[in-house]
Amino acid sequence: MQTKYMNPYLAGFLLGLLLVATVYITGRGLGASGAIKSITVEAVTSVAPEHAADTKFFQEYTDAHAGSALKSWLVFEVVGVLIGAFISGLVSDRLNFTLEHGPKIKSGVRIFGAMTGGLLFGFGAQLGRGCTSGAALSGMAVLSTGGILTMVAIFGGAYAFAYFFRKLWL
């Protein structure tokens, strides 16, 4: 039997405390998309080093970050997320390979949708300098105008587009 989810206000409270502790200890907030970026950069620089040396984006990244792209704070943090979520899933009996999708669509459509959504999110997070964790949540905690503007745009955008993609979910 799957265990019930935690009360959302309690989960939010704990997440907020974690955020405060993170800022107090490290001076920076939580994040996620930055780790995927580091992994992407590392993959490109090791598979096609010549191409990476020619491309401005990778050049700028390697100039700004000494050593391996994988030796970054966010990569360690996201590895932690994987472990933490796995343990939580184990404890609450939610571990199994499933492909979740809306009642009206087939698995193929869901896979295509997930990849497209990921692509857009990955791209948008670069342009917006952070995702829901790094820009929206952490930005709100430190009262950064940039972070809060990104947050409003993410959720505003999602509500604006939701109607057109309702068949995927409802």
Binding site: L30, G31, A32, S33, A35, I36, V78, V81, L82, I83, G84, A85, F86, S88, G89, R94, L95, N96, G113, A114, M115, T116, G117, G118, L119, L120, F121, G122, F123, G124, A125, Q126, L127, G128, R129, C131, T132, S133, A135, G146, L149, T150, M151, V152, A153, I154, F155, G156, G157, A158, Y159, A160, F161, A162, F165, L168, W169
Partner: peptide, 28 residues
């Protein structure tokens, strides 16, 4: 921030995740 945010919003309704939650969901 605005354009990037809107693109992420679109990605959110199409993909159903954001980066942090996708890592979390993939883990289980």
């Amino acid at each position: 921030a605005i354009v990037g945010g809107l693109i992420m919003g679109l990605g959110f309704v199409i993909g159903g995740f954001c980066p942090g939650t996708s890592v979390c969901a993939a883990a289980i």
